[in-house]
């Protein structure tokens, strides 16, 4: 069937074009990180640097504490993921496996929070973080110091629970047969033990999905870390640090260093995340389509 073959060719052409568009910015970034300043502003553009400037990377690492940025991102995204996993599993368990008055209201309420734009909390939460009693030089009324504002907790706590995580865990746990739980109860297991020893091991796939999805999205989060790091530069996460590259190195003079910094900031993580594609995709797929 020639028509069919033609169609196949057209679709291949479209896919290849789109694919090239997808990969080109990455390729350009990689090539440009190895260019000299002159090669970057050359007209017509230089595609591949004559002599790769590996020194660009050394120069960036010498000027910008990328390692500290990585560490901060790891602490923040890791802390949030851990907390989201625990709270989501507990709440998901309660909502999936217990029958009590108000359950549906709570569930719907949690789902509804997904519709709130985050800016509506930002200002009060920022102020609350400063006024946490007995932290950061504060007295028991929360006055006198800076509270949690200059600790990683200020970046972790406001995201410690995820409505999406609760939703996903509940959906997954609905699929665990009640008979398993009842059998355990007959054997005299406490509810806590059932949760820890039976439910959690069975929900490992869902936990992996929630954990990885949360980690990636928090790793890439900019807004809140930007607000916090403005007054606490030592908490600068990778996203904020990458944004600051443009300020640390004047984009008009040191673009080669900015691009080298961007390369160091995203390529390792992008490849790591790409290897976790399976879990991530499962996460987005489970959200809306299958219920």
């Amino acid at each position: 069937m020639p028509a069919r073959r033609a169609k196949r060719t057209i679709s291949t052409v479209i896919l290849v074009l789109c694919g090239v568009t997808m990969i080109l910015p990455f390729a350009w970034l990689l090539a440009s990180a190895l260019k000299t300043r002159a090669e970057l502003v050359a007209v017509p553009p230089v595609w591949i640097p004559k002599a790769p400037q590996w020194g660009n990377f050394v120069a960036v690492i010498g000027e910008v504490p990328l390692f500290a940025y990585y560490l901060n991102s790891l602490i923040v995204a890791g802390g949030i993921s851990f907390s989201v996993l625990m709270t989501s599993a507990m709440a998901g368990f309660a909502l999936a496996k217990y029958d009590f008055r108000g359950r549906d209201v709570v569930f719907k309420g949690i789902l509804a929070t997904m519709m709130l734009p985050s800016f509506i909390f930002i200002i009060p939460v920022y102020y609350m973080m400063r006024r946490v009693p007995l932290a950061g030089g504060n007295d028991w009324l929360g006055l006198g110091g800076y509270g949690l504002l200059h600790s990683h907790l200020s970046m972790i706590l406001p995201f410690a629970v995820s409505a999406w995580g609760v939703f996903l865990m509940r959906q997954f746990m609905l699929g665990i047969p009640d008979s398993l739980l009842d059998a355990a109860r007959i054997d005299g297991a406490s509810e806590g033990r059932i949760f820890w020893n039976i439910i959690l091991p069975l929900t490992k796939p869902a936990l992996a999905t929630v954990g990885i999805f949360t980690f990636i999205s928090q790793w890439n989060n900019l807004f809140w870390p930007l607000v916090i790091a403005t007054s606490a530069p030592e908490l600068t996460t990778l996203t904020v640090g990458l944004k600051m590259l443009a300020i640390a190195f004047d984009p008009n003079r040191n673009s080669h260093l900015i691009l080298a910094g961007l390369t160091l900031g995203i390529l390792p993580v992008t490849f790591l995340f790409a290897s976790l594609q399976r879990y991530y995709v499962k996460g987005i797929a489970m959200t809306g389509i299958k219920d």
Binding site: R130, G136, G137, G145, Y146, G147, L149, H150, V227, T230, S231, A232, P233, M244, I247, A248
Partner: peptide
């Protein structure tokens, strides 16, 4: 405490707001 000019005013104000 060194801040780039672009962020400097913001930094002064937010540092004060944050209690530091």
């Amino acid at each position: 405490e060194v801040t780039p000019f672009e962020d400097y005013l913001k930094k002064i104000q937010i540092a004060s707001v944050s209690g530091r």
